[in-house]
């Protein structure tokens, strides 16, 4: 097992390097970030001085090499806009994003797993069709449209929930305040997460229900509840775990849009700003981070896989 993990990490390193090279090349194709800094009064000489200061006068492979060397010293570079270290920017914004994504995933699964099981156990009934149709509805609503409806209902009409930021400006924040700000973004992300997963859980459980060992369990007469929760669910977990691992990138993508609408101070929001300003060091930092997170998520998925299914050996 340990050998397998080490092997996986070693494979991941060239993949990561490749990704950063491609990213860097694409970004230098995009044009210089200096264009975004030009004001009406900037002189040509000042621009050139700036280009040299930021190392932008060098060809792209030298820029990349400089960036890579810095990276190995634990330095992700500095933002071209605010001159803050990239690692500090990411550090400040990663917690809100993780909080948002983690809570949404949890809420989404808490809905999807029971609903999926219920749907599978009552397959081809009216209730099953209704639930499956609802899950399709959940994945068909664009998150930004749902956000607009929610803001209209709960902020404008009812005035129950705040629609922007993570804490009320000018206050200490505190648990209840953050919770209030989280309700809408979490529900919106959870709607699509539960929509996708309900169908996965349903089909995973359906497949297990056809198996011989389940018929054996049923015929032992241990009761419906135990058959489903003990024998069926545990075996259905394997495909579910894989699917959740695969959703991490999608989840991050969804967070970008929702963070944008709700001005949630997370990675999605700074990513959008960095893209608009062509703030390369920040974009590179975030891309590297997401790449690492995705690779780790894949690795954990495989490990959990082995834990849930004892027949899998690495």
């Amino acid at each position: 097992m340990l050998k397998y993990i080490i092997k996986r990490i070693l494979i991941a390193i060239p993949v990561l390097l490749g990704i950063t090279i491609i990213d860097y090349a694409i970004m230098s194709l995009a044009g210089s970030p200096l264009e975004m800094m030009v004001g009406p009064k900037t002189s040509q000489a000042a621009l050139e001085a700036k280009a040299i200061a930021l190392g932008l006068d060098q060809p792209f492979y030298i820029q990349y090499w400089v960036w890579l060397k810095q990276l190995f010293q634990g330095n992700l570079g500095y933002s071209m806009k605010s001159y803050q270290p990239v690692s500090q920017i990411i550090g400040e914004h990663i917690v809100p994003t993780l909080l948002l994504m983690g809570t949404s995933l949890l809420v989404g699964l808490l809905i999807a797993i029971p609903v999926g099981i219920y749907s599978a156990v009552n397959r081809y009934t009216r209730r099953d069709y209704t639930l499956v149709s609802l899950s399709f509805l959940g994945t068909s609503i664009p998150s930004f449209f749902l956000s607009l409806i929610f803001i209209y209902l709960f902020t404008v009409r009812l005035g129950w929930l705040p629609s922007s930021g993570m804490t009320t400006p000018g206050t200490e924040g505190g648990f209840m305040d953050v919770l209030k700000h989280m309700v809408m973004p979490v529900i919106i992300l959870a709607v699509s997460i539960s929509g996708y997963n309900t169908r996965y859980v349903r089909s995973a459980v359906l497949e297990i229900l056809q198996k011989d060992y389940l018929r054996t369990a049923k015929s032992k007469g241990i009761g419906r509840f135990r058959v489903i929760n003990k024998h069926a669910l545990r075996n259905a977990l394997i495909p579910i775990v894989t699917v959740i691992g695969m959703q991490i990138p999608t989840l991050f993508g969804g967070a970008v849009i929702v963070e944008q609408v709700f001005s949630w101070p997370g990675l999605g929001l700074i990513t959008m700003n960095a893209i608009i300003n062509r703030d390369y060091p920040v974009i590179m930092g975030i891309r590297l981070l997401t790449a690492v997170v995705v690779l780790i998520a894949n690795l954990i998925t495989d490990i959990v896989y082995a834990l849930v299914d004892p027949t899998i050996k690495y």
């Binding site: 995009a30 991050f252 893209i275 975030i286 790449a291």
Partner: peptide
């Protein structure tokens, strides 16, 4: 497949 799809698209769209 393993990349935040929207991020890729956004960067490409900006470029």
């Amino acid at each position: 497949m393993s990349f935040p799809y929207i991020l890729l698209v956004l960067v490409a769209a900006a470029i």
